[in-house]
Every structure is written in structure tokens, then in C-alpha cells.
């Protein structure tokens, strides 16, 4: 890739970014995401504030009474971002798909594709420029979400995240950008492949619902342990070994259930970011290295699925007809 090619990609990326931020549909979706995120983190932070106050009061009282070993707090400020990550998982994916649709629809409505393609711009550069512009916009959204969340936790929750926690959060948000970029590629792919881009948008949203909502839900619903609140095996007073013995009798069923859950890269995204944000209590004692050994397969899925979708997007843009064949002669 030479410098002129890089310059064209940069121009296309900046153009994509600029066009996207002027879209009313997109701004509306961003507004919904912002309100939902701020509300979620605010409510969680208010509750957290009183827990922090309680712990500090306990700590002061314990110190005053001469206790030299005070139990550490089990509060996890990063976990207050659980809702924010869930919104990125669902609304963020919808925004990314819509962004992909708008990229295709804009060129079709404005009939600018022939103007682009009659210049020294390759389809690969067009696809890469669009992708980078979209990724930059998604990164902006994620950065705003992240900064708002962390400030909310500090100011309202009265509990600032530590530098090592910030590193974990940065990783989680970086993966969020990759996750959403995958959905952008899906939006472009489906829209390019459809004669009417809006049909592609509908198809992409159906795929999104399947992977983000239906598949993980099937996996959860079919879990025997989830059949009663608190867990079936716990209610029956069984230990882990007995539970495993019983489940071994349903090996095929359990494998099927797990596989259904595993095909959702959205589920892997959730597992990864929840682990990084201390949402899962069992991961809290682990450092970053320990966490990565536990969730590396989820991370691999979160990178592999967008990579496949990006490959599809590039192929679709490459083979996209510039002119509607037969429309004019």
C-alpha cells in the first residue's frame, strides 16, 4: 500500500465519519444510547455511594475499636458499568448495523458511486476507508460512554477506579469497538447485497437479533440449573460433584445447549467485558493476566467473528455493481 493509497483511504474515512455524524437517524440512536447509559450508571452509582459510605463507616468504627485486621471491601466500582456494556452490546450493535446501511444507502441515493469509481479509487480502498471511518465514529461513541461512566462512578458513586482497573476497562472498551465494527461490516454486507438497501438493513437486524438476543437466550433457557430462581441444584441441596454426575447423563443435550450459546459472538463479547469489568464475582480476585487465561477463547471469538464479517464486507464492496446494469443504455 503506497502513500497515495493511504491518503485516499484517509480521505474516505474522514468523509464517512463526517457524513455519519450528520445523519439524524444515527444521532437519534446515539442519543438513546447516551441517555440509557447515563441513567444506568447514575442509578448504580447512587446505590454504590451508600455502600461505600457504609463500608467507610464500618472501617472507621473498626479502627476506633482497635481492630488491626479489617476485611477488605468487596465493592467493585467497575461493575457499575454492567448496564453500559449491555447497552453497547445491544444498542451499540444496532447503531453499527445502521451505520453500515447508511454508508451504502448514501452512495446509492446521491448516485455518487460512479463519481468515486471513475477516480483512482479501488473497491478495496473504498471498503477500508468506510470501515475505518465507521470504526473511528464507534470509537468516539465508546470513548464518550467510557469517560461518562468512569466520571459518574467517581463523582456520584464516590469511588474512583484504580489505574489497573482502568487498564482492564480500556481493554473492554477496545473490544467493544471491534465488536461493533463487526456489526457495521454486517450492515454494509447485507445492504450491498440487497437491491434495495433497506431490505439489507432488515436482514442485518434479523441476524443481529438472532446472535445478540435469541441464541444466548436459548442457551440460558435450556440450562437445567436456570429453571428455578437461585439455581435448581442449589435448591435440591446438591454439591458440585453430584451436579456434574447428573449432567453427565444428559451429555448430548448439554453439548447441544452449550454449542447454541457458543455460536453467539455477542455472548462471548459479554463474557469478556463482564470479566474485565468485575461483573462476575469469581473473576474479581484475578489480575489481568489471570483474567486473560480465563477468557482468551471469548476474546478469540470476539475478534474472529468481526474478522469474518469484515472479509464479507470487503468482498461485497468489491463485487458491488457501480451501475445498475440495464437501467440505462
Amino acid at each position: 500500500m503506497n502513500s497515495t493509497s493511504i491518503s485516499r483511504i484517509r480521505t474516505l474515512a474522514a468523509h464517512e465519519y463526517r457524513a455519519a455524524v450528520r445523519s439524524r437517524i444515527l444521532l437519534t440512536l446515539l442519543g438513546i444510547l447516551a441517555v440509557a447509559t447515563i441513567a444506568s450508571v447514575y442509578v448504580a452509582s447512587v446505590a454504590h455511594r451508600s455502600q461505600v459510605a457504609d463500608y467507610r463507616a464500618y472501617k472507621d468504627a473498626a479502627s476506633a475499636s482497635g481492630l488491626d485486621r479489617i476485611a477488605p471491601s468487596n465493592l467493585a466500582p467497575m461493575s457499575l458499568l454492567r448496564g453500559a456494556f449491555e447497552y453497547l452490546q445491544i444498542i451499540g450493535a444496532v447503531i453499527a448495523v445502521s451505520l453500515g446501511y447508511l454508508t451504502v444507502q448514501r452512495e446509492r441515493t446521491n448516485r455518487t458511486l460512479p463519481l468515486l469509481r471513475s477516480r483512482p479509487v479501488t473497491a478495496g480502498e473504498q471498503a477500508t476507508g468506510g470501515l475505518l471511518g465507521a470504526a473511528a465514529l464507534l470509537a468516539t461513541i465508546v470513548a464518550i460512554t467510557a469517560i461518562t461512566g468512569v466520571i459518574c462512578i467517581g463523582v456520584i458513586g464516590n469511588d474512583w477506579v484504580t489505574p489497573s482497573e482502568l487498564l482492564q476497562l480500556a481493554l473492554a472498551y477496545l473490544v467493544s469497538i471491534v465488536y461493533m465494527t463487526g456489526f457495521y461490516a454486517l450492515g454494509v454486507f447485507c445492504s450491498v447485497r440487497s437491491r434495495h438497501a433497506v431490505n439489507g438493513l432488515i436482514a442485518a437486524l434479523c441476524v443481529l437479533v438472532l446472535f445478540v438476543l435469541v441464541t444466548p437466550q436459548i442457551g440460558d433457557t435450556l440450562d437445567a440449573d436456570n429453571q428455578i430462581p437461585g439455581g435448581l441444584f442449589k435448591a435440591l441441596g446438591m454439591n458440585r460433584a453430584d451436579e456434574t454426575t447428573i449432567l453427565n447423563h444428559f451429555n448430548v443435550y448439554e453439548t447441544l445447549r452449550t454449542r447454541i450459546e457458543w455460536i453467539s459472538f455477542s455472548q462471548h463479547y459479554q463474557r469478556f467485558v463482564f470479566a474485565m469489568a468485575d461483573v462476575k464475582e469469581r473473576y474479581r480476585p484475578l489480575g489481568l493476566g489471570g483474567l486473560m487465561t480465563k477468557v482468551w477463547t471469548d476474546l478469540a471469538w470476539v475478534f474472529a467473528a468481526p474478522a469474518a464479517l469484515i472479509a464479507l464486507q470487503r468482498r461485497a464492496v468489491r463485487t458491488q455493481p457501480t451501475m445498475q446494469e440495464g437501467a440505462t443504455s
Binding site: A19, R106, T109, N110, R111, T112, P114, L115, R117, S118, R119, P120, V121, T328
Partner: peptide, 15 residues
């Protein structure tokens, strides 16, 4: 494409 200019029959551009 480096040596041509092109005006389609119904040009729209980015509004």
C-alpha cells in the same frame, strides 16, 4: 481513471 474526468447524466453529489 487518472487521465479521465466524468460527468454522469444526472449528477447529485453529497447534499
Amino acid at each position: 481513471t487518472r487521465c479521465i474526468g466524468y460527468l454522469p447524466s444526472e449528477v447529485r453529489m453529497y447534499p
